[in-house]
């Protein structure tokens, strides 16, 4: 196989992987503060994109502003969901919370269906059009992928800084490590959970906006995206944003290169087998630490 073809498969893998990665990041925030997996994460992604598309279609809201509004609205929805469905539960068991998030996911999806209908929509490309591409050493990639990679990178860095250096970030991590102890130290644990839902919703919405030109957006696309994002988050090591990005790119590359050897229909099989092997040898994920995962409930 010549080098430029090899590079083309590589870039295809990066394209798909960047989408998985940016969706996976959102899972980690809520997991970090509550220890639960939010199965409505995919719906945040779709809602963000749908709002942004609606705003851009009005014709007089510029793209960056449309994305900002969409992110703000989705953040509000994230907060509302937490306050209405989760906050009042006295003794939240992990299983109970997870089932609630599945319910939320179904409600959001059906609501989106009623509002936006079943049509496929998409955001305009940030740079260029649907036909433009960037040529790298004879292989080509859509400029939008570079946007996705760049913005994912910025999200990861900002999150790292936030969790490591701000008081709120530290408080959120404290809640994850030991909720009772955190409350004894005067941290408002319930507030932190609300905040984590807001951040997750914001990241999900942003992910939806930047990937929409590539993936297109339809009301029921959330679940398949969330499943891939979930797998990636697990493989990378739950709770770690950098790991999510690496895991996402890895899954994308495995899928892309497997197509060389086997029919495309089986690419998920190849990917899942490799992921299972990774988890078999390192159950806490590629970047997860054994001691850390032992502390967590799920």
């Amino acid at each position: 196989m010549s080098f430029d073809i090899f590079l083309q498969y590589f870039l295809s893998g990066i394209t798909v992987g960047s989408i998985y990665a940016v969706v996976a990041i959102g899972f980690n925030i809520i997991y970090n503060t509550t220890g639960i997996i939010n199965f409505a994460q995919g719906e945040f992604v779709i809602l963000g994109a749908l709002f942004a598309i609606t705003f851009t279609r009005t014709g007089f809201i510029p793209l960056p502003l449309a994305i900002l509004f969409a992110v703000l609205i989705t953040t509000g929805i994230g907060a509302a969901i937490e306050i209405v469905f989760i906050k009042w539960i006295k003794n939240p068991s992990v299983l109970r919370l997870i089932i609630i998030t599945i319910g939320i996911s179904i409600i959001s999806r059906e609501t989106a269906h009623h509002i936006w209908g079943e049509q496929v929509m998409q955001m305009p490309y940030f740079t260029g059009t649907s036909t433009s591409s960037v040529i790298i050493l004879g292989a080509s990639i859509a400029p939008q992928v570079l946007w996705v990679l760049g913005i994912s990178g910025i999200i990861v860095i900002v999150l790292q800084l936030f969790f490591k250096f701000t008081l709120t970030g530290k408080a959120m991590r404290a809640c994850a490590a030991n909720r009772t102890a955190a409350r004894l130290c005067g941290i408002n644990a319930k507030m932190m959970v609300t905040l984590s839902f807001m951040i997750s919703a914001a990241i999900g919405a942003l992910a939806g906006c930047i990937t929409s030109p590539i993936t297109q957006t339809q009301y029921d696309m959330g679940s398949p995206l969330a499943i891939k994002g979930f797998v990636v988050a697990i493989v990378g090591g739950l709770g770690n944003s950098t790991a999510a990005v690496v895991g996402g790119l890895l899954l994308g590359l495995i899928e892309s290169f497997s197509i060389i050897f086997i029919p495309n229909a089986f690419k998920d099989v190849a990917a899942i087998i490799i992921l299972l092997v990774i988890l078999f040898f390192k159950p806490s994920g590629i970047f997860g630490k054994k001691e850390e995962s032992a502390l967590k409930e799920f």
Binding site: Q8, Y9, L11, S12, V16, T215, I259, N264
Partner: peptide, 20 residues
């Protein structure tokens, strides 16, 4: 002849295979 997932989000890799 290739089959792809109904939920596929990017198909450049399978198209690369076709092109080759």
């Amino acid at each position: 002849a290739e089959v792809y997932e109904a939920s596929a989000t990017d198909l450049t890799s399978v198209l690369t295979k076709l092109n080759n």
